[in-house]
Computed example of a mutant assay.
Amino acid sequence: MATILITGGTGLVGKAVTSLLISKGYEVIILSRGQSAAGNAGYSVAHWDPAKQEIDVTAVQKADYIINLAGAGVADKRWTKKRKQEIVDSRVQSGELLVKTLKENPNKVKAVINPSGIGWYGDDAKRKPGRKAFIEDDPADDGYLGETCKLWEASIDPVQELGKRLVKFRIGIVLSKEGGALKEYKMPVRFGVAPILGSGKQVISWIHIDDLARLMLYAIEHEQLHGVYNGVASQPVTNRNFMIMLAGKIKGRFYIPLYVPSFVLKILLGGLSIEVLKSATVSNSKIGLTGFQFLYPTIEAALGDLTKE
């Protein structure tokens, strides 16, 4: 079987992707800032440090495919000036290091899969007239996340000049039992409160983590895939409907909807509140036309799975 090199393999998405690949018989090498060591879960570990532009070249030379998931969590901390730069640098430095390594060393890498984010698109108010959703040929937004995604994608683009197939997925909000956004949403619900952020009308484009992992595998196994695809489920949902459905799955009828005003979110979250309150309706038609089928196309199916005890 082929060997897959994964950056960001110990994160939420990385763990799901690694588990799926191993279950399908692939050899997996995870690049980590720690010292090289044998993995204890069916994969091996090699050293890299994008900030220092250090990488284990032999690990890259063993790889048939690279999945680049590296990057500081966008919503993990308050957006200070330092944190915003860290978010950008962690992505751009990773892409640049991979490109440099592939360019300067003999290798057998056939394709690079590089997830980005739907932060590329900005708010629904900026959609082209007549369009119901953002699609892949829409330009990058001029806000912070739009610029971040633009730099992120640009850092990995040169692999195409090296003859490598490049697949970029613009990923929506990832829903998982193990952490991320859903964990944060669940906490108040368990106490009988369903917090609705701002007006609650803002649209969330999301994806179940199992479908996201399957997208990575699909890109490896289908050579016709190249370029940009949106990694979102078929049914975007408003914040209000999402929270009401989540509360119903967890608490039945025993919960209270609670609106959290926009100004409160701005005080609590600072600049990050812009993203929490932003409405982004994103289409997955392009990836659907390739034959990919989502296991969880609707929010009801996704939450039904993710709230099972």
Results as ranks from 00 to 15, higher is better:
residue 2 A to D: 15
residue 241 N to M: 08
residue 76 D to Y: 09
residue 200 G to W: 08
residue 144 Y to I: 01
residue 292 F to C: 00
residue 265 L to V: 09
residue 137 D to A: 12
residue 131 R to N: 12
residue 198 G to H: 10
residue 227 G to H: 01
residue 45 V to G: 07
residue 261 P to F: 03
residue 280 A to H: 08
residue 148 T to Y: 08
residue 6 I to G: 00
residue 25 G to T: 07
residue 122 G to C: 04
residue 33 R to Y: 06
residue 232 V to D: 01
residue 192 G to P: 07
residue 201 K to D: 14
residue 64 D to R: 07
residue 163 G to A: 11
residue 85 Q to M: 13
residue 294 F to Y: 15
residue 164 K to Y: 07
residue 114 N to E: 03
residue 1 M to Q: 11
residue 57 V to Y: 08
residue 288 G to P: 08
residue 74 V to K: 09
residue 238 T to G: 01
residue 150 K to P: 02
residue 96 E to P: 06
residue 264 V to N: 07
residue 131 R to S: 14
residue 285 S to R: 15
residue 128 K to T: 13
residue 291 G to M: 00
residue 147 E to I: 12
residue 182 L to C: 11
residue 270 G to Y: 13
residue 291 G to N: 08
residue 237 V to P: 02
residue 166 L to D: 05
residue 108 K to V: 10
residue 187 M to D: 10
residue 75 A to C: 07
residue 209 I to E: 02
residue 237 V to Y: 04
residue 223 E to S: 00
residue 36 S to P: 11
residue 175 L to H: 12
residue 176 S to I: 09
residue 130 G to I: 08
residue 82 K to N: 13
residue 178 E to V: 05
residue 307 T to G: 02
residue 29 I to D: 02
residue 35 Q to F: 06
residue 122 G to W: 06
residue 74 V to Y: 03
residue 142 D to P: 03
residue 277 L to P: 05
residue 212 L to G: 04
residue 226 H to E: 15
residue 197 L to S: 06
residue 285 S to N: 14
residue 292 F to W: 00
residue 98 L to P: 03
residue 213 A to Y: 00
residue 161 E to F: 06
residue 88 V to P: 07
residue 140 A to V: 11
residue 144 Y to W: 11
residue 205 S to P: 00
residue 274 I to A: 15
residue 137 D to Q: 14
residue 195 P to H: 12
residue 150 K to R: 15
residue 175 L to T: 09
residue 121 Y to I: 08
residue 112 V to W: 01
residue 208 H to T: 06
residue 43 Y to E: 12
residue 83 R to F: 15
residue 301 A to N: 12
residue 70 A to S: 11
residue 97 L to K: 00
residue 265 L to Q: 06
residue 173 I to H: 09
residue 174 V to F: 09
residue 220 I to R: 01
residue 254 F to R: 10
residue 209 I to H: 02
residue 79 W to A: 01
residue 66 I to M: 05
residue 282 V to P: 02
residue 257 P to M: 00
residue 141 D to E: 13
residue 302 A to R: 05
residue 281 T to N: 14
residue 208 H to D: 03
residue 94 S to Q: 03
residue 78 R to I: 13
residue 253 R to H: 12
residue 210 D to L: 11
residue 132 K to I: 07
residue 305 D to T: 08
residue 256 I to S: 13
residue 260 V to T: 07
residue 262 S to A: 15
residue 210 D to H: 12
residue 37 A to R: 15
residue 39 G to Q: 04
residue 9 G to T: 01
residue 82 K to I: 10
residue 197 L to C: 09
residue 180 G to A: 11
residue 39 G to W: 03
residue 250 I to Y: 04
residue 184 E to K: 15
residue 242 F to L: 15
residue 245 M to P: 06
residue 197 L to N: 07
residue 143 G to L: 12
residue 203 V to N: 11
residue 289 L to F: 11
residue 79 W to E: 04
residue 285 S to E: 15
residue 103 K to P: 08
residue 18 T to V: 10
residue 248 G to N: 15
residue 1 M to L: 10
residue 299 I to S: 02
residue 306 L to N: 09
residue 296 Y to G: 05
residue 117 G to L: 02
residue 158 P to V: 04
residue 121 Y to M: 04
residue 286 K to N: 07
residue 126 K to C: 07
residue 266 K to I: 10
residue 203 V to Q: 11
residue 19 S to I: 04
residue 130 G to L: 06
residue 14 G to W: 04
residue 65 Y to I: 03
residue 175 L to Y: 15
residue 114 N to G: 05
residue 265 L to T: 05
residue 90 S to F: 09
residue 129 P to L: 00
residue 236 P to W: 10
residue 222 H to Y: 06
residue 159 V to L: 04
